[in-house]
Design a protein around this nucleic acid. Structure first.
Lengths: 231, 231
DNA sequence: TACCATAATATGGCCTACCAAAATCATCCA
DNA sequence: TGGATGATTTTGGTAGGCCATATTATGGTA
């Protein structure tokens, strides 16, 4: 009798995404992977034309990105792509260290072998991407490693925070992973996290996760100040 | 010669706030202090009338609050005031514990007496507000205690995160501080943080800050499950 | 009376067009 | 040459309209 229960199984998955959400993703993408550079002005009407949507949508999208910290608004001059300074980047890495350390500890305390196994799979993906010089893959699989870390202990709020902060340092991330030796050191540090989790060693997992982010932060600082010509 | 440097001193402080920002603050306020209740629908056209602004503004405001987590958007039904469940509240307290613990540790490691002094002043304000049964004051001064904790070590990004999360549990906060004995226990726990900072005891400050938030979280959980008839 | 089809109504999503104020750029004149 | 003046660009904000969907009356029929 229940139409819902009956139809749910075969119901086609509607796109359901509104135009605004589509536009939001597009612009965020464009900023994150550098199509728009830090400091670039984001002129509303230009964006309208480029996205093929109305000003209403563009304004809402810009507001949203502003609250995400990807866009900054100069009064009476309009929105620009936010510029990340040295110090803010450091703070973001520091927060990630605290939260990822926390998640790692919680994972270790679960004593559930499935967690370490899932993390190991992500880790394998990362190593493979490094071997194949697929840097986009490295980033994606690293994200999914951390997502696993948080979602295995049902910490989606903290994952949301980490994710929000991470997009703001995305260009730094893509530079750090290209650094000399990072293809060996990075995975090794992550393996230490997984080992500690597998041993049920909360403190060890916490420390290992902190160390990993901290070393990424150090590299990022070098990149930011040195500005080595990687392009 | 420099007109800017010259004029800056006497330049009238223009409100500079755009209508949108004003509206944003109003609606956020209205949600935070319960004028709009969790689950209430936020009908765009009604808000236009109540705020006296156009739909464009209202929509931008709703988007912004959505990304802050204060408003949820039901597909094909529109925005409502976000409802905070048990588990999410717990996660928020947990994140605050991690970040406030971090800030407390950093403060302790600065070995700067001015920090402990400033915190002590906030603490006095809190106690006074408790004595005067000024609960709004307790909340405000507690916030400023933590703001000091973060700003003294220049961690405005982390402070932003904590702030963002805190508004979502504001009603819980106002309930926990009214709990029996909280007027004694709360300040005592905060005093332990300040003491540790004054001693330069990083680990102690970290632990004390964690303890304080953790106990607030425990009270909040009780309130949430017990649902004592406060109205 | 019970029930179903249909029509209103309410509302979100999206669009166009317009205006005012500020910033920026170009121009022209003393 | 230096500044006043005017044109252009762009944001901030408004008004109103169109369409699709969801809810709610409404009314007619078995």
């Amino acid at each position: 009798m229940n139409d819902d229960a009956h139809g749910a199984a075969i119901r086609v998955e509607r796109p359901a995404k509104t135009l605004r959400e589509l536009a939001l993703d597009k612009v965020r993408e464009a900023i994150v992977n550098g199509y728009f550079r830090p400091g670039d002005r984001l002129v509303e009407r230009d964006l309208c034309a480029q996205l093929g949507v109305s000003r209403t949508i563009v304004r809402e999208v810009l507001r949203h990105l502003e609250s995400e910290g990807l866009v900054a608004n100069l009064p009476n001059k309009g929105p620009i792509v936010a510029q990340l300074n040295h110090d803010e980047a450091k703070q973001i890495y520091e927060i990630r260290a605290a939260l990822e350390g926390m998640a790692a500890r919680l994972c270790a305390e679960q004593n559930n072998p499935a967690i370490a196994d899932a993390l190991d799979r992500s880790l394998e993906d990362i190593k493979r991407s490094y071997r194949e010089k697929d840097m986009a893959g490295v980033l994606a699989h690293t994200s999914s490693f951390y997502q696993t870390l948080f979602s295995m202990v049902d910490r989606h709020v903290a994952w949301g925070v980490v994710n929000l902060l991470t997009v703001r340092i995305n260009h730094l991330r893509s530079m750090t992973i290209k650094t000399q030796n990072r293809d060996v050191q990075g995975p090794a540090q992550m393996a230490r996290i997984v080992d500690a989790i597998r041993r049920g060693d909360g403190d060890g997992a916490y420390q290992a996760a902190m160390d990993h982010v901290t070393s990424a932060s150090a590299i990022a600082q070098t990149v930011l100040s040195g500005r080595q010509p990687i392009d």
